[in-house]
């Protein structure tokens, strides 16, 4: 399993630029999780759908962060899956929030394609998938 991780020649997802990417993912994981816990524990009934979506986004960020940081073969698959769901999520919710404004009650992290977070939620999965491809062993 870890024969790839031990070899310094093969790039790992948690090294080089990946180090920075993991840091950014970690910040989103932390922010989204904390926010989500706060929303669900204090005012869940106000906008259940939006808060559940935020919780889903938070858990995806957590999984992606850990998987990218680990970078072994299984983790790469997990990271690819999580980041793909993240991309689909931000595109779907982003579109839905524009087509049906107010459908979610309150803004989620993916509303308006992440416009509330300088579009980082939109850029992050694209960069993440590119990075997984870039570090793929030959």
């Amino acid at each position: 399993m870890s024969e790839q991780g031990l070899s310094p020649r093969i790039p790992s997802t948690g090294r080089g630029f990946g180090r920075v990417l993991v840091a950014i993912y970690a910040i989103f994981a932390l922010a989204a999780t904390a926010r989500s816990v706060f929303q669900i524990t204090t005012k869940f009934s106000e906008a259940p759908l939006a808060y559940l979506l935020s919780a889903l986004a938070a858990s995806i960020y957590v999984v992606a962060t850990i998987a990218l940081a680990r970078g072994d073969r299984t983790s790469r698959r997990v990271a690819a899956g999580a980041i793909l769901i993240e991309l689909i999520g931000v595109l779907t919710i982003g579109t839905a929030s524009l087509v049906w404004p107010g459908a979610f009650g309150v803004a989620t992290v993916w509303s308006g394609f992440g416009s509330g977070y300088w579009f980082v939620p939109l850029v992050l999965p694209v960069v993440g998938l590119w990075w997984l491809r870039h570090t793929r062993s030959p």
Binding site: G14, R15, G16, F17, G18, R19, V20, V22, A23, I24, A26, I27
Partner: peptide
Amino acid sequence: WARGDKSRAGLGVIAVA
């Protein structure tokens, strides 16, 4: 986290922080 990679990436992590 930056100490784990002493290349320019470590500096990048600090910059993000």
